[in-house]
Design a protein around this nucleic acid. Structure first.
Lengths: 189, 189
DNA sequence: AGCGTTGATGACAGCAGCTGACATCAACAG
DNA sequence: CTGTTGATGTCAGCTGCTGTCATCAACGCT
């Protein structure tokens, strides 16, 4: 495997997911990941900021997609419905990737360090959503709370979708979760 | 400062908060923290699992308090109202500690690594709350969603409280945030 | 007072994550 | 064919973190 093989980033991401799955995150060394990808440790750190980031390459696109869908919702839509539109767009992105999502999620769930990284990515999404809602004229703290609600639905919905049978579509699961959140918050009083 | 000075943990926690505030988290070395506390690096790691954990010593008690209040809510209370009772109990704990909370929050907000740690502590609280709600007979996904909603209110409410004037009590801020969440989720349809 | 036990701390070696600096090499333009 | 460019390799070094063993203060027992 020569120096200039194509797709170095992708090879390292796949190698990392394999090794994290097989031997665990902590037991895996960055040098091992790089070696399996036919590269060196130094090159790994040129592509990924740290050992965790290699599993979160797509999070930027996900956030962009989510934000764009919320920003593009009809002006007349209530904030929570704009977020629902965002969840729908996100759900499309996961179509056909349930197996990969499961593999990745299993590793993250088993590793606190990776869980931390996932949480800060979700927090970044929440902040971006809140900003988008503010640009739509939503005041604080409504904007932040709506964004947090959307992320809560995404978190719970994602886990249910990942655990579910192939037939259940993510968009449907997300809608159910949002309805459940509505019911539950309306519960008291 | 001799070997057996009392309250080694507290001294290190205070030294860490000072140094993180003055020079930044990354620029502060664990050896420096230990030295300011009159101890060695090795002793620091005997008391705290890592360089971040030194700022989160109280998170366990906070979670316990929250959970106990939810578990102790009247059986007739709706899930969201049980969580509201928990928020109220938590708010009592912060009474008179706004200045300390501000200092600590400023450092955490400025440091992604610390933000990650805070987020996983909140996720732990969310999971504990969901478990408590399940024990109260709440089914999934309602339990997890209610717990996430409670944490969302806590996050948004905390920031507002920390930024607010001395007169505004945390319990009041939390109640307002919860009302706002109710309004916002009910918004669509 | 003397002595052994216990628990916290210090001292040291070492690995892994991560970075800066510089050399090397493939591809591409002209 | 040559100079440039950008990705990669190599090496040195710091810091976070851990295992291991020695040291020391406090306390109880005789």
């Amino acid at each position: 495997m020569g120096r200039w093989e194509p797709n170095a980033r992708g090879r390292m991401a796949e190698a990392a997911l394999q090794l994290y799955s097989e031997h665990g995150y902590e037991q895996t060394t960055v040098a091992e990941i790089a070696r399996r990808a036919g590269l060196t440790e130094r090159t790994f750190f040129r592509h990924y900021a740290d050992k965790r980031e290699v599993l979160f390459a797509g999070s930027g696109e996900l956030e962009e997609l989510f934000v764009r869908a919320v920003a593009g919702a009809p002006e007349s839509a209530a904030p929570i419905d704009a977020v629902a539109a965002g969840l729908d767009a996100v759900a499309q992105m996961f179509a056909g990737r349930r197996e990969y999502a499961r593999r990745r999620h299993a590793v993250i769930t088993a590793t606190p360090e990776l869980k931390e990284r996932e949480l800060i990515k979700l927090a970044s999404m929440s902040a971006a959503l809140a900003g988008t809602l503010r640009r739509r004229g939503v005041a604080e703290p409504a904007a932040s709370l709506t964004a947090e609600a959307g992320i809560a639905v995404f978190k719970v919905g994602f886990e249910r979708w990942a655990a579910a049978a192939e037939e259940r579509e993510m968009s449907q699961v997300m809608r159910e979760a949002l309805d459940e959140l509505r019911a539950v918050t309306a519960g008291g009083r």
